[in-house]
Nucleic acid binder design. Structure first.
Lengths: 338, 338
DNA sequence: CTGAAAGCGCTTACAG
DNA sequence: CTGAAAGCGCTTACAG
């Protein structure tokens, strides 16, 4: 493999002249020389060694996409279609900006900090943050530009990209209320612990209040997650004497689990129970009936996150920005008028 | 950030002694000195700089997970639940072996080669290979250890991990035949172009032959992919006068699309049409009826791929191994006896 | 517009 | 068991 030295030797110039063409310092090298050097570089398939560049520049053009390890499941969060899609978009967009993406699962803050220093990582994006203590710790301890997706802390300087979660909860409930529903349940992991979920819950409460209603304790399904959690909810509902006529789930997979569990027990969707999900990820389109869900624009979320990160890398003073993306109910067939 | 020099200075030794403890050359440093140096290292949160190490060693401990860009869809293949799950397992297992994972989407061979040289990447794993020409080109041109998942070429020296695709096609058809089906369709992307699909198709043919049957041209649905493709198949079937009673799809998403499309048109699953999928990925469990599918062990596939790659990195003569993982029909509710 | 020198943080022979 | 020297492939001031 050829090095800058070989190229310089063949071109009859110094290595620093070659370095200048690599770095597009047009002012520092004559067009003719540049032309000649470029030809020699392509002829030899020359590619600059990032290790050497990184050693000097203290930067690597590597962005770490941080994947928390969720202890609810043994599998990586990339199994989640929402996470996979997000990671895919991030990779695509970062690559366009000539950054390299390192996938990095972690359990605690120190692991992230170590990887960052090991590679002089230029920036990090955290998707599907799990525990608040870990997430807060990371935000507080890291010096590297970090964009947190789907979590925000008012008391910390952070770059975060979230959804209008309160609005989403509100819209979902309002949508059902307008369809005539008055007995509306709410299924979520950890309603009172995660800010995202709490916001959605508060939006739901607000809509109920507008109709002079209040949530009913029994119809709040807490600590349920993914499909399995949804099936548990279905089972619980099937045993109730006073059932809700509709349920809002804070995640499509959870909604799908509810639908699946109900169908298994002869509870018809949407005739016997209406269901609204959250995200509009792949499963929403897959199942029958199609899932009516609070849709987000995942591509736009990725795009905004990358933009924020790029700006943060360039501007060290840009370390505190909170962006909220709109959501919108995507109608399919899982809700019926009553 | 502290360097090896700082640590050496504080410990009162030379940098090379510190280097020896970093690299666990126990023979070259006394236990007492090692102990002292280790304490200083942890005190300062010292982490070796990989750029510097990589510059000398010509290796990086980076493994590239290669993601072909499929032109059938604008989204990254990570949106596919099978790909996401696989990538997640790979990351997890490689991290356990203290390798770093670089995510790397690409359209042509040169892009991969460039990234490899830029970072001195130690090994690569290709998932969901698309075009044969690109895949072959990559295998032929790269010097770096490469494991190809789900594709094999008899005429090339390759490390590949595949399924028993022929057996899978056979098992799926046999399963349906034993349930009394005689009119069995087959839906796939590019039946005659991809070896994986062709093998499944041949297994299907073999099972039919055992029952004195032959595939019927009309019931071969070619060039259909993912959910959209499945819905097209359903539409075609709905318009047929002589319909198949069962269909095998070479991908769960495709099978789900068929089911969805049928349900939309009042064709009951499994009463009017039985469907068998392939992979046993997340959607199979999600839909109603549950999808009977040719199941593979994705975790084992990831595990075997990582093991092969590790061996290839250690042993330059290990460049040709073809491993076939077994598959097994996972029964759910999408097939009915006739 | 071009070059010689120093150095990024580490490891690899080579001596002792 | 320990160290001084050279060097990996680049870039960064500094001169001209």
């Amino acid at each position: 493999m050829s090095t800058i030295k070989d190229i310089a030797a063949e071109a009859g110039v110094s290595v620093m002249t070659v370095s200048n063409v690599i770095n597009n310092n047009h002012a520092r090298v004559s067009p003719a020389t540049e032309q000649r050097i470029r030809e020699i570089m392509t002829k030899h398939n020359y590619v600059p060694n990032m290790a050497a560049r990184s050693l000097i520049s203290k930067s690597s053009r590597i962005i770490a996409v941080l994947l928390p390890i969720w202890h609810v499941s043994t599998a990586s969060i990339l199994r989640d279609p929402y996470a996979g899609q997000l990671a895919g978009y991030l990779e695509e967009m970062l690559r366009e900006k000539e950054y390299y993406v390192m996938l990095c699962s972690f359990e605690n803050v120190d692991q992230v900090l170590m990887v960052q220093r090991t590679w002089q990582i230029d920036g990090m994006i955290l998707i599907l943050p799990h525990e608040d203590t870990v997430t807060r710790g990371l935000i507080e301890k890291t010096q590297t530009p970090l964009v947190v997706i789907d979590r925000h802390y008012d008391d910390l300087k952070t770059l975060s990209v979230c959804l209008d979660d309160r609005g989403g909860g509100y819209q979902a409930a309002k949508y059902l209320l307008e369809k005539g529903h008055r007995k509306i349940g709410f299924a979520a992991p950890a309603i009172y612990e995660s800010s995202v979920i709490r916001d959605r819950f508060e939006g739901y409460q607000e809509a109920l209040r507008e109709y002079g209603l209040k949530e009913k304790e029994e119809w709040l399904f807490d600590s349920v997650i993914q499909q399995e959690g949804g099936e548990t909810v279905a089972e619980t509902i099937s045993r109730m004497s006073d059932r809700p006529t509709a349920v809002i789930a804070t995640e499509d997979l959870l909604a799908c689990g509810i639908i699946k569990g109900c169908q298994k027990r002869g509870i018809q969707i949407p005739q016997d129970l209406s269901v609204v999900g959250f995200d509009d990820s792949m499963p929403a389109k897959l199942i029958t009936p199609g899932l009516t869900t609070v849709a987000q624009d995942i591509r736009e979320k990725a795009n905004l996150s990358v933009q924020m990160l790029m700006r943060a890398i360039e501007d060290p003073s840009f370390r505190d920005e909170y962006r909220i993306l709109p959501v919108k109910v995507k109608e399919r067939q899982s809700v019926q008028e009553v």
